[in-house]
């Protein structure tokens, strides 16, 4: 009974944060509200029995996106975005209309039982225990392959802009240093666990990649990151290369793209996930601090 109130509370919080993000006159306030909205959203995912998404939303949606927004915010100097009263009025009218329409639509909606039963039924054939991993890396693996392609597009695109950003590394201090010494190894191990466990429990390549990129960012911010000459090209692309190779090899073997053969599906999936996680970590890291892209 009380749990229902938690749901309503979370829903109201997310609604308020949505409004303050979209209709505040100060950009920094909007960014803060947005990061807050991401955190509330990850609580909602946990409530809706979607732990995989809760981890990803907290790490990527709120974490990496928040870091990106804040890092960029300093470099732009348009502190205000005034709202004309007229558009506020339109906004309020639209809100009321949408609310009514939403309630009507949801009440008249016909729902189905979804694909849950089918996924459960075929899951043993996918050779993994976590149904989300099964969908991502077996049933709908082509989506995941092309999504790693999206990451590469973004990286090439950001690199092509040739930004001249001054390195933003903080001066190393005793606090940061000891934090790094504790947090980074922990994050590396935890990321590895999330990746390994992802086959059967919540977690997987995306969550692990996000956690590793966080560890990399900590190292970078404390000035402890050695310049890796291979960083620029090898790590961000190895995941896509592995996945594409898997697609071509499986096609050559079976005549069907990504129909795992020769080795158990689980083995294919582990190999793809490990390299994908490394690429995701490297790409997310490079997207937050694109200046490390400079100098070949």
């Amino acid at each position: 009974m009380t749990l229902v109130f938690i749901d309503y509370g979370l829903a109201v919080m997310l609604a308020v944060l949505t409004l303050t993000t979209l209709f505040s006159a100060q950009i920094d306030r909007a960014i803060m509200s947005f990061v807050g909205a991401g955190l509330v959203a990850s609580l909602i995912w946990a409530r809706l029995s979607a732990p995989d998404i809760a981890i990803a939303e907290a790490a990527i949606g709120a974490g990496v996106t928040g870091a990106l927004l804040l890092a960029t915010w300093h470099r732009l100097d348009k502190p205000e975005a005034p709202i004309e009263p007229a558009s506020l009025l339109v906004g309020i009218t639209v809100t009321v209309v949408i609310l009514v329409a939403a309630a009507l639509l949801v009440m008249t909606m016909t729902t189905t039982s979804g694909l849950g039963a089918l996924v459960q039924d075929k899951l043993p054939l996918s050779d993994v225990g976590n149904p989300v991993t099964g969908v991502l890396l077996n049933f709908r693996s082509f989506d995941t392959l092309m999504e790693i392609g999206v990451l590469l597009v973004t990286l090439v695109a950001v690199k092509s802009l040739n930004l001249n950003i001054a390195p933003a590394a903080a001066a190393p201090g005793p606090v940061l240093d000891s934090l790094v010494r504790v947090a980074v190894p922990l994050a590396v191990v935890f990321g590895g666990y999330v990746l390994w466990a992802g086959a059967d429990t919540p977690g997987g390549a995306f969550q692990a990649g996000a956690i590793w990129s966080g560890a990399g960012l900590l190292l970078y911010l404390s000035g402890n990151l050695p310049r890796l000459p291979l960083l620029h090209s090898f790590w961000p692309t190895i995941g896509l290369v592995t996945f594409t190779t898997a697609a071509l090899v499986t096609y050559a073997l079976t005549g069907v793209v990504l129909q795992y053969a020769l080795w158990p599906a689980g083995l294919w999936i582990v190999v793809i996930e490990v390299f994908a996680a490394l690429s995701i970590a490297a790409t997310l890291f490079l997207l937050v601090v694109p200046d490390t892209l400079e100098g070949k």
Partner: peptide, 10 residues
């Protein structure tokens, strides 16, 4: 749904 649908999660 009775069985949580994993496809939307993915």
């Amino acid at each position: 749904a009775q069985v949580t649908d994993s496809v939307p999660h993915a």
